[in-house]
Amino acid sequence: MTKLITIAALFITSLFFGQGKYEEGMGKAFQLWKEGSNTEASAMFERIASAEKDNWLPNYYVALVNVTTAFTTQDKDKLSALLNKAQDAVDVELAKAPENPELLVVQAMIYTAWIVYDPMANGRKYGSKASEVYEKAIKIAPENPRVVFCKAEFEIGGAKFWGTDIKPMCAEVDRAIGLFATYKNDTKFAPSWGLDRALETQAACKK
């Protein structure tokens, strides 16, 4: 009995130790990202993902860091490297959880980044793919503020390109802002971004 208790105690201690290392690593990765060290942040999230194979969040942030960085470059080689890394990370997690709405949002963002880089070459190829992903995400999580906002933002871009009315999408941006105020996620390090961009888009809608 004593031996069993000792083994149990060691197991529990190892769980807490492991959790502590995970939280420490995630915190460091977020700090690097906040400081603008995107490459280093991505590498840190990748190391955590390799150790936390049952946790989708590290790979989610590998993808998010790289896709958001991709929106800031017009260098084709750099953009391709960033988006390929983001895609690889998303593929790993979507294979395990194909209906995770947060992962679907990032997948749609990857398609959007390709479109933004070269609308004429990539618009037709990736536009329908992004729309399909957003439609899937909104059916799964109609009250998720990132799903609602990012879908609306993507559709606003398309409407402006084609010269159509953006009012319905702006109404969805308003709805997303309300959802940001009430949406709860109890998982530590779960996605919480998007409100600032939604407010900026709301202000642009009113001009």
Score class of each variant (00 low, 15 high):
residue 17 F to C: 13
residue 14 S to H: 15
residue 39 T to C: 07
residue 46 E to F: 10
residue 65 V to H: 01
residue 48 I to H: 03
residue 62 V to C: 02
residue 56 W to N: 02
residue 31 Q to S: 11
residue 56 W to T: 02
residue 66 N to V: 02
residue 38 N to S: 11
residue 21 K to M: 14
residue 61 Y to N: 01
residue 14 S to Q: 15
residue 45 F to R: 01
residue 26 M to K: 01
residue 14 S to I: 13
residue 53 K to A: 10
residue 25 G to A: 12
residue 16 F to P: 09
residue 25 G to L: 12
residue 64 L to D: 06
residue 59 N to E: 03
residue 61 Y to S: 01
residue 46 E to Y: 13
residue 24 E to K: 12
residue 46 E to C: 08
residue 42 S to Y: 04
residue 59 N to W: 02
residue 25 G to W: 06
residue 59 N to C: 04
residue 34 K to G: 08
residue 48 I to R: 04
residue 19 Q to L: 12
residue 34 K to Q: 13
residue 51 A to I: 10
residue 21 K to R: 15
residue 36 G to Y: 03
residue 27 G to N: 14
residue 32 L to E: 06
residue 16 F to K: 13
residue 57 L to K: 01
residue 44 M to F: 06
residue 20 G to K: 05
residue 19 Q to R: 15
residue 62 V to T: 04
residue 23 E to W: 15
residue 19 Q to P: 07
residue 64 L to C: 08
residue 24 E to Y: 13
residue 48 I to F: 05
residue 39 T to N: 14
residue 16 F to A: 14
residue 42 S to V: 08
residue 45 F to T: 01
residue 22 Y to F: 12
residue 47 R to T: 09
residue 16 F to Y: 15
residue 26 M to C: 02
residue 65 V to W: 02
residue 64 L to S: 05
residue 58 P to V: 00
residue 45 F to N: 00
residue 38 N to K: 06
residue 16 F to I: 14
residue 28 K to Y: 09
residue 29 A to C: 03
residue 43 A to C: 09
residue 57 L to I: 06
residue 44 M to T: 06
residue 17 F to S: 15
residue 50 S to R: 11
residue 41 A to L: 02
residue 37 S to K: 11
residue 44 M to S: 03
residue 19 Q to V: 14
residue 44 M to R: 02
residue 14 S to F: 15
residue 55 N to T: 10
residue 22 Y to V: 07
residue 19 Q to E: 14
residue 46 E to R: 04
residue 27 G to L: 08
residue 23 E to F: 15
residue 25 G to D: 07
residue 40 E to Y: 07
residue 64 L to P: 04
residue 56 W to V: 05
residue 66 N to H: 08
residue 29 A to N: 02
residue 21 K to C: 11
residue 26 M to R: 04
residue 49 A to N: 06
residue 15 L to P: 10
residue 22 Y to Q: 10
residue 61 Y to T: 01
residue 22 Y to R: 10
residue 51 A to M: 10
residue 48 I to L: 11
residue 56 W to G: 01
residue 52 E to I: 06
residue 17 F to M: 10
residue 29 A to Y: 01
residue 34 K to S: 11
residue 21 K to T: 14
residue 51 A to P: 05
residue 50 S to W: 13
residue 61 Y to L: 02
residue 38 N to P: 04
residue 45 F to Q: 00
residue 18 G to Q: 14
residue 54 D to V: 03
residue 47 R to N: 08
residue 23 E to I: 06
residue 57 L to N: 00
residue 36 G to R: 11
residue 15 L to T: 09
residue 62 V to P: 00
residue 44 M to E: 03
residue 33 W to S: 00
residue 28 K to G: 07
residue 62 V to N: 01
residue 14 S to T: 15
residue 51 A to R: 05
residue 35 E to T: 08
residue 54 D to A: 05
residue 26 M to F: 11
residue 14 S to P: 13
